[in-house]
Amino acid sequence: MTVLCKSSLERIYAHAMRLYPLECCGFVFADGTVHLGANIQDELNRSNPESYKRNAANGYTFSLADTARLVASMRTDNPVSIIYHSHPNVGAYFSGEDHDKALFAGEPIYPVSYLVVDVRDDGVHGSKQFEWDGMQFECRESFS
C-alpha cells in the first residue's frame, strides 16, 4: 500500500475544495507527486446525455491527456500508484460506478489503489484509500 504524505493529501484536499461541488480527479505517482486531473464528465454529458447520464457533480472521467499520462507512467520507474477523486456531499465510499471504472472483466485495469475524498460545502471531511483484495476493493486506510 502506498502511504500518502501530509503534503500530498493537502494538495488533493485543496483540489477537491477548489472544484466543489464538482468531483475532482487525479493521481499520485509512486514518488508522491500529485497530478491534478481534468474531469471531462460535464463535456461528455453535454455532448451525449443518453450515454453519459452523470455530470461532473456526481461522476468523473479523466481527459485523454490525463489517461495517456497515467498509462504511460505504468512503463516507467515512477508509475501512478493511487487514483483519486472526490464524492461531493455523499461521503468517502467505493461506489458501483467506481468499481465499473476500476475493473475490466472482473480484474483491476491498473495496479493502483483508489482514494475517495469526502468533500462538503463546509470542507473536506477526510478520505479513504481502497485496495483490491482479489475479490473487491476494500478500505485499507482512512485519513482525516
Rank of each mutant, 00 (worst) to 15 (best):
F27E: 08
E138D: 09
W132C: 04
H85P: 15
A57D: 05
A38M: 10
S81I: 05
L64G: 01
V34S: 08
C24A: 14
L4S: 07
H87G: 06
D98V: 07
S81V: 14
R120N: 13
V80R: 05
H87T: 00
N55Y: 01
F137C: 09
D66A: 07
Q129M: 14
L115A: 03
S7M: 00
A105H: 10
V124T: 14
L44C: 09
P111R: 01
Y60M: 01
L36M: 03
D122F: 06
C139L: 03
A56D: 12
H15D: 15
D118W: 03
P108Q: 00
R46S: 06
Y13F: 14
I82S: 12
N48G: 01
P88W: 14
R46Q: 12
M74A: 00
F29N: 11
Y13P: 04
G26K: 03
Y20M: 05
E50P: 03
P21M: 06
S47M: 11
L22W: 04
V71H: 07
S127E: 12
L103D: 10
S73P: 11
F62I: 04
A68Y: 10
D133T: 07
A56F: 00
E50N: 08
T33F: 09
R69L: 03
D77H: 15
Y52S: 00
S51W: 09
N48A: 11
D118T: 07
R75S: 05
Y52V: 03
G106M: 03
D42C: 04
Y84M: 03
G106K: 02
R46P: 04
A72N: 12
D122M: 07
H125W: 14
D121N: 13
I40M: 02
E131F: 06
F130L: 09
L4N: 03
